[in-house]
Structures are given as structure tokens and as C-alpha cells.
Amino acid sequence: MSFDPAIAALVPPGSRVLDLGCGTGELLEHLIKHKGCSGYGVELDDANLLACMKRGVSVIQRNLEEGLAIFEDQSFDVVLQLETLQNLRNAEAMLKETARVGKMGIVSFPNFAHWPNRLQVLFGRMPVTRALPYEWYDTPNIRVGTYADFGVLARKNRLKILDSFGLQNGEVVRSRPNLMASVAVFKFERE
């Protein structure tokens, strides 16, 4: 399974879902088959596109950097943006677009404040871990933020956090997630 059950659980049954950077479409397929959801994925990669089509998951080939103009305001119950925000040059603009298109947004990204990362930076090196397996010079993660940072960005963009937690080895971390979790998860809506 390439998606996290804790994230799938955040999606209300029967939702109309837009999954930005949907990969091979596994999560969407799960939501459609087991939670009565409907919707689309957005994906740039050719191989992922084919995987979605074979599953029967509707997928739109689009570069997220080019925005979501093709989708109307508030046209989805849930917009998922899992492990993609950190790869986008205009991450803040994308977050605004997510909130425009969806009644609810769910975002996940690597938490750079996880303690092993802090430790490596303390010793003078950029972190290379299981959650962040890249060297500083070849990483696609061009927006490096922390669990705590996202809260600040959300407030700035008048987003109301409905739920948030960390994920560490598939386990939900609700105690000191900024220190204890390698992945940050936020569920939010517009104020």
C-alpha cells in the first residue's frame, strides 16, 4: 500500500475528491472502491498516468506549477496534496489554489524539524534520512519546511486547521509531532 491509512481516514465517505500529484492512483482507487468517493487525480508523470488509467481512476495530466485554473471554485469536497507541496516552486500559491478549489484540504509533507534532521544539521550537514533520502544538490524537495512552519503559513492564508498530526513509520504521532514525526499532516478549510 503506497498511501497512509491515517490520511485515507481523514476523507469523509462519499466525498468528491481531487488528488493533486496522485501518483499511481492507489489512494483514489481505495477511496472510490471502499468509501464511495468520486473524483480525479492530477499527475505529470507518464508512467503514473498509465497506472491510473489501467485502474480506471480518472486522471488529468498537468503540471501543478501551472495552477488549477481548469477546476472551478469549491468544486471538490476534499483536495488532497500529499507529499507534493515540497516539490513546488510556488508552494504558497498552490496552497491557496487548494483552498479555492476544495471545501477541505489535506496536505502532507516531510517535516524537516524531525529530531534526526535537527541532529544532522547540528553536526553541520543537511539531513539525509529515510523520509528525506536525497542529497542537498539533487533533492526535488525545494521547499523545506517544518510542522510548525505550516501552522504559520496556514494562519497567514486564513486557513482554519481542522486536524493535524505527525506520521512516523505509519504511526500517528500527536505528541510533539514537530520533533517526533518525519511527516506532517494537516486538514484545513477556509476561514
Binding site: 468528491r16 468520486s38 480525479y40 498516468l49 480518472s58 488529468i60 498537468r62 477546476f71 468544486s75
Partner: peptide
Amino acid sequence: REIVKALLDNRLDVSYAE
């Protein structure tokens, strides 16, 4: 993409390859 947008607006099942 104009076609795709019209289909999305109608909540139809659509996949798009560019």
C-alpha cells in the same frame, strides 16, 4: 483543455493526456 474543463464542470468521468 477547454474540452476537459467543460467535462470537469459537468462532473463527467474524464482522463486527459498531454
